[in-house]
Amino acid sequence: MALKESEAIVLRTYPLREADLLVTLFTRLEGKVRGVARSAKKSKRRFGGALEPLTYVRAFYEDRERQELARLDSCEVLESPLAAEVSYPRAVALSHVAELLDELLPDREPNDAVFRLVISVLAGLRGSDLWMPVTYFDLWMTRLMGYLPELSECNVCGRALNGSRAFFHALADGLMCAEDKRLASSEMSSESRKLAARMFLAPVEGFAGTPWPKAQGADLRKFLIQALQRHIEKKLVTAVMLERISS
């Protein structure tokens, strides 16, 4: 079979046999593809540092008859996370992006909107700011996967929430008004709802340059993570680690 060529983001690698790696790629051409990179651990010539998580690469691979896993022939680095300093918070943020993509994207379904989102968010994560790109990514991923409920009305009674208090709960979809909120609900501030509305209208670069403390949009991120976890029916490992980062 002929070699396929596609821009791709490396999501994860797992050791396989003595020196091979099982690689999960998010390709622009075919969506999420799993493949085997033969001798990737021993010989760095064909792959070099290209198989590090969240590396933006040009991947060359081929499908094999009656086999689910592709054969990864080589990768050319287009942009590496190692080009900028990898601090602990940045490593957690990058892993969060990789985990969400791996958990949410179906196999072999191209999604150009998500691909463009990842490229712009990765550029945002090259700077020192972490919380803005992470919030932007979580919000847009939830929306693009079709898991984002309406943020302007109560999910129970349908009343408009504009200007009034809004609540959310880990086990319930959407936002609720003060009358319909469940026990142990958390509140989402109107600032965070306005922030979400602004994020739907502007690219990630539009928010760069202004200081963004962890507290800003924290309630929105919590709401989004809860929504995603409800849909994938499991806890996101990196969400807990993000929460533990102090600033």
Partner: peptide, 12 residues
């Protein structure tokens, strides 16, 4: 190692 994990550990 000069990997993302190795670099994050070194920086930390």
């Amino acid at each position: 190692n000069p990997t993302v994990e190795g670099e994050a550990t070194a920086t930390y």
